[in-house]
């Protein structure tokens, strides 16, 4: 029997890993990958809550579907921006893009 807490623990670990990745990387593509990891952690949570707590409503699963959709859209746009960035600056490191500062 898989308890709800086990799934939540897994999700917490994946989310923390994703957060670490977002904060620790300077390559834009790597940051995007870490973000995908975080999104997946969230999706696991949603599915677990739906399946264990309110199986009749299916809200979590439908939300997960929407999140996957939005994640796909986000990634497509983000990668387009990365391509653009690369074309103008020959680099995809976010710490070299710091014009918007004091």
């Amino acid at each position: 029997m898989i308890e709800l807490e086990y799934v939540l623990f897994l999700s917490a670990v994946l989310f923390s890993l994703g957060l670490f990745g977002v904060l620790a990387r300077r390559n834009a593509v790597m940051i995007l990958l870490a973000i995908e990891l975080m999104l997946n952690a969230v999706n696991i949570n949603l599915v677990a809550f739906t399946v264990y707590l309110s199986p009749d409503l299916l809200v979590g699963i439908i939300f997960a579907i929407f999140i996957i959709t939005v994640a796909a859209a986000e990634l497509a746009l983000a990668l387009a921006i990365v391509l653009r960035l690369y074309r103008t600056r020959s680099s995809v490191n976010v710490d070299e893009v710091n014009l918007m500062r004091w």
Binding site: L23, A24, S90, S91, V92, D95
Partner: peptide, 27 residues
């Protein structure tokens, strides 16, 4: 498409230790 040769330096940002602390704190 964004391949820039292998000598572009680290993929990691200088705040990596801080990120580790934040990640562990989040966990």
């Amino acid at each position: 498409l964004t391949r820039q040769g292998d000598e572009t330096g680290s993929l990691d940002s200088p705040q990596k230790p801080l990120a580790a602390v934040a990640g562990l704190a989040a966990l």
